[in-house]
Amino acid sequence: MVKITISDLSFSYRSRKILDDLNLEVRCSEVLGLVGPNGSGKTTLLKCIDQILKPKGSLLLNGREIGEMSRQEIARFIGYVPQSNTSSSSTTVFDIILMGRRPYMGWRVGESDLDKVAEIVDLLDLDDLAMKDFNELSGGQKQKVLIARAICQEPQVLLLDEPTSNLDMKHQLEVLEIVRDLVKEKGISAVMAIHDLNLASRFGDKLAVLLGGSIYAAGDPRSLLNKELIRTVYGVEALVVKDLDKPYIVPMRSLNGRSAG
């Protein structure tokens, strides 16, 4: 079943075109990896999907035009995990996650909201951190908490902006495993912007390669990733190892003449 259908989507900032006529589909139980060089429009696309930015074109969620939905409705449908993770004042992890219930509750916090938060805290093993101040956590812990908040929104679609940036190897895998398991278990969809092609290839069911605001190519990472694509899109000479289940990329040197070592 198709969750998100994007057709002819464009976005301009003042006169500068950032996204140009995108067409894309995301299905249920699918992780879509958005890859591409810096400035290719990955973050902008995520923000357009969540209507934080207002793009031109059509965006259907479960067949419904998103432009006709209220902010509240969108918040029940889409959970967004931003890249920057700061909180301006002291807030406990529990309260941050509870904020994910905002689209469902009024001033009062209901028993079911607390149950939901406790369930998610438990699910992501955040018990020991629950009463700690969010600003005191490490980068990996913060990322997990923000994902927990997005899950608390009980969304159909999870959008993640560089969920592994600033994380060590173990936390990178842990965060992406959480996302993959959630997507499979709950039958939701995830769209994540991610720089690391190997992680994208490994955790993405499908990849979309963005270049200069357009989709250069999209499809299964097994057939999509090859030397030519990496050369054209990134300007990098790379080895593509295909011995494993998913292709593995070893970058060799950038094509402006310098060797990577």
Binding site: K47, D50, Q51, I52, R71, Q72, I74, A75, R76, I78, G79, Y80, P82, S84, T86, S87, S88, S89, T91, D95, I96, M99, G100, R102, P103, M105, G106, W107, Q153
Partner: peptide
Amino acid sequence: LLLKSWDINAMGAGDETAKSLGVN
């Protein structure tokens, strides 16, 4: 103001986060 407490909390996490949580 009291009714909007949650929205003010959400805005503390940044305007974009607040928007994605359904805050106008």
